[in-house]
């Protein structure tokens, strides 16, 4: 059996990551180490978590523009409650996660029941969450609660002298849980079915409404979790945190080989999509003379290549069908 065509984008993604990492290793001393690899996870933990939620949304054929704002709102609510109201983190963190999930559910319900485009509903969600941040405070709220600083500083040692942060572990767990959900639960398969053909899903008797709303719930939850992780990373709440983050997330998912029209893709691909973004940033920081905006240009270029690749693959698929 030749390589199943559905695996082409993800194989390209993984190869791309390996090539980039190898190229970096040859070019820069100190690049090829386990710690650089681990740092990719540590520095992109929140991106990874958000992208996991976004993968489900995009797989279902939708889009969620609100993720960056929900992250900011989560940091803001966490900081506000912990720092200003003195609530214990054990209460605040579940509350924030619940808030994200409810926020997503409401958007999902509007998308499904009023048949409004996901783009526009989540755009409103993005405005709303961002605006609510400023209702809490316009300024940065620094968090110095011992729990948060402990979470920020704890290093989990790994063999070979390298280490991971707690955030990175949370992100890895999220990826693992997402892979399981996507492939081994009915919900996951329904998401794929929904993205493949909504009308067929309906006629096959699948719970379309529930699945569609839940997808946004999941994305809201992931964004909130990413927001919590973000507070571990930044130790502050701020309304300008994660501005434009939805684009990075969508880019990670697309570079991970997921079809933006839905139905095709893997969470594992998203994982490598995030790592590719991380590698680009790492290479640019190692290069020293290159500036950070090259990241955006390269990511834009990769987006273009992947979108075109998918376009070619799917048009060939159509001709096969005929």
């Amino acid at each position: 059996m030749s390589l199943n065509r559905k695996y082409i984008p993800i194989v390209v993604t993984i190869l791309l990551f390996i090539v980039m990492f190898t190229a970096g290793s040859f070019r820069y001393t100190g690049f090829f180490s386990l710690q650089v690899l681990m740092n990719l996870l540590i520095d992109n933990a929140f991106l990874l978590i958000t992208a996991v939620g976004m993968s489900f949304v995009i797989l279902s054929g939708g889009i969620d523009l609100s993720v960056g704002s929900v992250i900011a709102l989560s940091t803001m609510v966490s900081a506000g409650l912990v720092q200003q109201q003195g609530w214990p983190p054990a209460v605040v963190i579940p509350l924030v996660l619940l808030m994200g999930a409810v926020f997503g559910t409401l958007m999902g319900a509007m998308i499904h029941y009023f048949a409004i485009q996901p783009f526009i509903v989540t755009l409103a969600g993005m405005f709303l969450a961002r605006g609510l941040c400023y209702v809490i405070s316009i300024d940065t709220i620094t968090i110095d609660h011992s729990f948060y600083t402990a979470m920020a500083q704890t290093r989990i040692p790994l063999p070979g002298g390298s280490f991971l942060s707690i955030s990175a572990v949370i992100a890895l767990l999220a990826v693992a849980a997402a892979i399981f959900t996507a492939h081994y639960t009915r919900f996951g398969r329904n998401v794929y079915a929904l993205g493949g053909n909504e009308q067929s899903s309906l006629l096959m008797g699948l719970p379309v409404a529930r699945t569609k709303v839940l997808v946004y719930t999941l994305s809201g939850f992931c964004s909130a979790l990413a927001g919590v992780v973000f507070t571990f990373y930044m130790l502050s709440g701020y309304g300008l945190h994660a501005v434009g983050f939805e684009l990075d997330t969508i880019a990670a998912v697309v570079i991970g080989g997921t079809l933006l029209t839905g139905g095709v893709g893997y969470v594992l691909g998203t994982f490598f999509g995030v790592l590719i973004q991380g590698v680009i940033q790492t290479i640019i920081s190692f290069e020293g003379t290159l500036s950070s905006w090259w990241t955006k240009i390269v990511i834009g270029l990769l987006l273009f290549i992947f979108i075109l690749l998918q376009r070619v693959l799917s048009s060939r698929r159509l001709t096969v069908k005929e």
């Binding site: 509007m110 009023f114 048949a115 409004i116 526009i120 509903v121 755009l123 409103a124 969600g125 993005m126 405005f127 709303l128 961002r130 605006g131 609510l132 941040c133 400023y134 209702v135 316009i138 309304g239």
Partner: peptide, 19 residues
Amino acid sequence: EITLVVKAFVVLAVCLIQS
């Protein structure tokens, strides 16, 4: 920055009316 909250409700209102 609160403008954003107002904008959010404007977007929703307009979309709901159009839906």
